[in-house]
Measured scan of single mutants.
Amino acid sequence: SSQSQGISSSSTSTMPNSSQSSHSSSGTLSSLETVSTQELYSIPEDQEPEDQEPEEPTPAPWARLWALQDGFANLECVNDNYWFGRDKSCEYCFDEPLLKRTDKYRTYSKKHFRIFREVGPKNSYIAYIEDHSGNGTFVNTELVGKGKRRPLNNNSEIALSLSRNKVFVFFDLTVDDQSVYPKALRDEYIMSKTLGSGACGEVKLAFERKTCKKVAIKIISKRKFAIGSAREADPALNVETEIEILKKLNHPCIIKIKNFFDAEDYYIVLELMEGGELFDKVVGNKRLKEATCKLYFYQMLLAVQYLHENGIIHRDLKPENVLLSSQEEDCLIKITDFGHSKILGETSLMRTLCGTPTYLAPEVLVSVGTAGYNRAVDCWSLGVILFICLSGYPPFSEHRTQVSLKDQITSGKYNFIPEVWAEVSEKALDLVKKLLVVDPKARFTTEEALRHPWLQDEDMKRKFQDLLSEENESTALPQVLAQPSTSRKRPREGEAEGAETTKRPAVCAAVL
C-alpha cells in the first residue's frame, strides 16, 4: 500500500463515540455579560531565545476518518491537505487489492476528492471536503458537486459515486458533537469551532446549510445566566432586550441578528466578523496607526449616533465590543453586545450600574441610586476607546495605585505619557480631550465629534464608502454560481449515467 503517514491498516477498528472529540476555545468574540476587562498594560515583551531549542513535538491529529468498508483504511489527519483517489500521487490511494476487485472500484476517479483545513476566524481551523469526481462525492447523502466544497462537521458520513455507498465517517477532533444542539438549529446550521467564551456562554462559528455562508452563533446558558443575574427581577429580559434591539436596528456599522432560537439555552445567530475584536488588534499591534484609528472611530461614531437617534444607549462600549470585518488594516467595524443597552424612556434617566469599570463615565460612578444619566455615557466610553487606539494603553487603570480607579475617572485625570502622545496629531488629542470631559453637559456629542476637524478627511470617508460598496456587492452575490457537472467518465454501479447527480441539489457548496 502507498498510504501516507497516519493511515492504519485495519478497517475493522472499533469506532469511538463522539464524546472523545476535544474542545477548543479562544478569547471572547462577544459576550452578553460584562466580565473583568482584559488588561492592556500587560503586553508581554519578546522573550530571549533559549540556548537549546526544544524538540519539535509530534503533531496531534486534528481529524480521524473511520473506514466503513473492507479495502479502505482508517486515517489520522495530521497534515493540512489529503487527496483521495486511484492515482498513485494521492496521499490516500485507493490501491488495496481487496478494493480493486470490487465492482465499485471502476466508478472512483483518479482524484476523487480531497479533505483539507484552512485558517478561519480567531486563527481556528475549518475542515472542508472538495469534490473532484465525475460520479460524485456525497456528505450525509447530499451531493457536494464537482469543483465545489463544503465544510465537514463531526460525524459526517462520506459516500463515493452513490449516496448509499458510504466509505468513511469523519471525526473532527477539535469540535463538539452536533447532537448536543437543538434540532431546529441543526436543521438550518452546521455548528463548528468555538470563537470565544464568557461567564454565561460562548460564541460558535457555524455555516448556513442552504448557502454555506459563515455566521456566529452566540449561545447563552439559561442556567448560568439565571445564577449570574439572580438580582434582576427577570434575567430573561436581558436576552430578550438584546434580541428586540438587534432586530430593529439596520446600520452597516451595527451587528445584524439573523436568527434566534429559544431552547434549553438561547441561541442568537449573528453575522460573522472575520477580523475578531478591536481589543485583540490593539494588543497585537501595541497601538494602531492614526489613519486606521480615524477610519475605525468614524464608523463607531456613525453607529452610536444611529443608536442615540433611535433612543438607544449602549452602556457597555469597549474594544471587546467592536468587531472587525476582516484581518486587513482597512476594514469595516461593527458594534455588538447589546445586553446592557437601554431604550430611552421619557425621563432619559437610568440608575442601574452596569458596564465595565474602566470605560464607565464619571456620572455613572457618582450617581448610583441618587440620580440618572443619559446618552453622554456612550460618548465618554468612545473617548476611552479612542485614547486606547491612539496610545496603546488605557487612560484609567486600577494599577495606578496612588489613585483609585473611581477617583481617576470622576476627576477626569487620565494617565498622559508625553513621549507616547508625541507621535499623535494635535487634532486627534483634542478630540480625545473633548470626549473625556467629566461634566456630561459639556462633553462632545456624537454629532459634535463628527464635525471635529480631525474627522474632516475626505480620503478616509471615501475609503469607508468603498468598503461599504464591497460589502454590499459580496452579500448580494449568490453563493453557488454554477451547477454541478453531469458529465460521466465512468458508469455508476447499477444505474444510468447522471441518474442521481442531477436530482440532488449541491447543498452548502461554494464554487472555488
Rank of each mutant, 00 (worst) to 15 (best):
M350N: 06
E426V: 11
P357G: 03
K503E: 11
C508L: 12
D439I: 05
P357T: 13
M273N: 04
V438A: 12
G339L: 02
E320S: 00
I343A: 11
W454F: 10
D280I: 13
I335W: 01
V511Y: 07
L349D: 14
Q479V: 05
L450K: 10
M273L: 12
E447I: 12
I243V: 07
L436W: 04
I255A: 09
R375C: 13
D457T: 00
T475A: 13
G412A: 06
Q299H: 05
P505L: 12
Y266T: 05
D280W: 14
S474F: 11
V368T: 02
I254G: 06
K433R: 10
F261P: 05
E495K: 09
C508P: 12
S411E: 11
L512M: 13
L365F: 14
T356Q: 02
V480F: 12
F464S: 11
L450F: 07
T352M: 02
L246E: 14
A476V: 09
F338H: 00
I343V: 02
L246N: 00
L288K: 03
V366T: 04
T486S: 08
I268T: 12
C293E: 01
L249E: 07
L249Q: 12
L477R: 09
T446G: 05
I245L: 02
A303I: 04
R287M: 10
L467S: 03
Q483W: 07
Y359V: 03
V282T: 07
L317P: 01
E244W: 04
K289M: 07
P319K: 00
V420Q: 15
I254N: 04
K247D: 07
E309I: 05
L302R: 08
I257M: 07
A506L: 00
E493Q: 11
V432A: 05
P319A: 13
E471R: 07
E271I: 11
R287V: 14
E328Q: 11
D439R: 11
D430C: 01
V322S: 03
A449S: 06
E447Y: 12
V366S: 05
E328D: 07
E274N: 12
L301K: 00
M350T: 12
V420P: 13
R488P: 12
G275F: 15
E447L: 10
E426L: 10
V507I: 12
K413N: 05
D337W: 00
R351S: 06
E363P: 03
F416Y: 14
L365G: 06
K286C: 09
L272A: 11
G339D: 11
L431V: 08
D466W: 12
H340R: 03
E277C: 03
S348T: 11
T502H: 11
K258Y: 05
E398D: 10
E497L: 08
E309G: 06
N310E: 05
L360T: 03
